[in-house]
Amino acid sequence: MEIVFAGFGGQGVLTSGLIVAEMALEEGKNVTWMPAYGPTMRGGKAYSVVKYMDGVIGGPDMEEIDILVAMNGPSLEYTELLKDGGLLVVNSDAISDDEEIHLNADVVRVPCLTLAKEVSNPKGANIVAIGALLKRSGIFDFETAKEVMTGYFEEKGKGKYTEANEAALKKGWESV
């Protein structure tokens, strides 16, 4: 399984990857997570690649993508590597619904930022996207996802955001 989260620096695409990587680890898979970003903390292209499988994982970078989350317009360039029949989650707050996407893939448009704001968690747009992709792909169930995500943030000393993050995950899950 190869999942790519792409967007601008600051949209949380590295963190999204880390959270999903932890879910795969929880299920006993071999996992790699690889970040790519420019020299700036905010803005600029950024992405993270999560790969997991039972066997030995090859290179950690994008090769043939099963699931692509495009948080902004430039991220759509990676659809080149999206497998036929793959899943593309589009952040429709950044990519207009008028933008036609012709792919042999399942394309879902989710207004990630709008939904995140609805649950008063404007920094949680990336988590909304995770919720949507998990529901649509069925790779991990909601309870596992919630537990792993909460554990991830608590370990980082960010336990006080647990409720807001769980609300964002649920919002994304219910949006598709």
Partner: peptide, 9 residues
């Protein structure tokens, strides 16, 4: 670079 930046279990 990628080996230094990536994560594995």
């Amino acid at each position: 670079a990628a080996l230094g930046q990536m994560m594995e279990a």
